[in-house]
Design a protein around this nucleic acid. Structure first.
Length: 391
RNA sequence: GCUGAGGUGGUGGAGCGGUCAAUCACAACAGACUGUAAAUCUGUCGUCCGAAAGGGCUACGUAGGUUCAAAUCCUGCCCUCAGCA
């Protein structure tokens, strides 16, 4: 009950369909992040109206609260949050590995020693909520993700930021391979007794080192994971680095398995880049985060270009600008509210501002992805890309 | 009119002899935002020169005074607020 079907391709860019027990995902697609079983500020109805096909929640957060036992009573985080479409969960590896110093995304050595200890067995850490000690292992991550009930789940890995020592990175790289294998074994056992199949994605690490990326991908292919996720700091908001990372392995991507980019940030410029290098789905927190801080995405028709990264701060508009933020966007925010009003809400920290802008940004991203998809199906992706970013 | 409290940068509000161009907060402006401890975070914020280090100038109601040195002490005046007439 899980399948990826490639429909068309243009170069490495591909359009396809992922079938899951909770419906299809037409790719390439943006997967909004619902870390704590909510895409921040948005209702499920708004998510759907904005064209979202699936959501991604987090093992780490939901394990700590409300707990996997609570979620399993609801039949998974999808039913819990009233989302009946396809779902993803991340394994929690990312959180326990290096998200303990939020703004920098990297844990100070001293803090790391204090809050999380990673051994081959797993990660022992203290909850950011109440300081209680917990351990997460590949096996446990699989068990929690089974309880969370997503259609697509991730292997437990240990990503590391680039600014650590080579020795540490090598350690994490090798450890991740072992953890992925353990994830796979436990996942296979669990699936035997499950009604609804969950597809486990193996995670490819190795940053921009071709040797490591290839080794990592070949390992994932050999174990025969149903899907492939590309992880690491190099899959981020810098299109050039993302390109360098993906170029090392794009020619090895199989036609019958979906490729997910974990945490592909930024806007259209980076996404086109990633799609042109074989990415089918990606999750991204900045689409909604930027909305909450007042940044809206712009279509080229509204002045979006590679120079302004297809975005503008709503504060830049005149306080009495009576026009909508987009001439062509069909989202509720653009249909019903003026720039002046949205600006007013954001300037005055009104919650509705972040919400209305989130509706727009999510709709924008979904619209954009559907245009990307059409262009691949029409074999005009290269043209489309040129129109948007001029190359 | 009397008594008391007070007048500080765009705002609120610290400071009560030198370390003060003046804590802090807010606003404003600029920037960042990767598998979300993000409705968050960072920077600038009297003015002039400088890339910076640094330096000049003007400032704590107003006019004087004391002092080597005053936003800080003293005196007059103006104004605000509270209480009493």
């Amino acid at each position: 009950m899980f399948k990826y079907k490639k429909q068309q391709n243009e170069g490495y860019a591909r359009a396809g369909i992922i079938q899951t027990p909770h419906g299809e995902i037409q790719t390439p697609a943006f997967i909004p992040v619902a870390t704590q079983a909510t895409v921040k500020t948005l209702t499920v109805e708004e998510l759907k109206e904005s064209g979202s096909q699936a959501v991604l929640a987090n093992t780490y957060h939901l394990f700590l609260s409300p707990g996997s036992d609570v979620i399993s009573k609801f039949g998974g985080f999808g039913p819990f949050m009233n989302w009946n479409g396809p779902t993803f969960t991340d394994s929690g590896g990312y959180q326990v590995s290096f998200l303990w110093e939020p703004q920098k995304g990297i844990l100070q050595k001293s803090d790391r020693a204090a809050s999380v200890k990673i051994t081959d067995e797993g990660a022992t850490f203290k909850s950011h909520r109440d300081g209680t000690a917990h351990i997460l292992t590949p096996e446990k991550s699989m068990e929690i993700q089974a309880a969370l009930g997503a259609d697509i789940i991730m292997a437990f890995d240990q990503p590391l930021s680039g600014n650590t020592t080579e020795k540490r990175q090598d350690e994490a790289f090798l450890r991740t391979l072992k953890w992925e294998e353990r994830s796979f074994i436990r996942w296979e056992e669990i699936q035997k007794n499950r009604e609804k199949f969950q597809a486990l994605y193996g995670i490819v690490q190795g940053e921009i080192d071709p040797k490591k990326r290839i080794e990592s991908l070949q390992f994932v292919l050999k174990l025969n994971f149903p899907g492939i996720a590309i992880g690491g700091a190099s899959i981020g908001s810098n299109p050039d680095i993302t390109r360098a990372a993906l170029q090392t392995i794009v020619n090895l991507f199989p036609d019958d398995k979906p490729i997910h980019a974990l945490g592909l940030g930024g806007g259209p410029e980076g996404i086109l880049n990633a799609v042109s290098l074989g990415i089918d789905t990606f999750d991204n927190t900045s689409v909604t985060r930027m909305a909450r801080t007042g940044l809206i995405f712009l279509f080229p028709e509204d002045g979006g270009n590679i120079k302004n990264k297809f975005r503008v701060d709503i504060r830049k508009f005149s306080p009495d600008d009576n026009s909508s933020i987009s001439k062509i966007c069909v989202c509720t925010t653009c249909k019903k509210y003026s720039r002046a009003y949205l600006r007013h809400l954001i300037v005055n920290d009104e919650l509705l501002g972040g919400r209305l802008l989130s509706i727009h940004n999510v709709a924008y991203m979904n619209t954009f992805m559907s245009l990307v998809r059409s262009s691949i199906l029409n074999k005009s992706f290269e043209n489309f890309q040129k129109q948007w970013v001029g190359r």
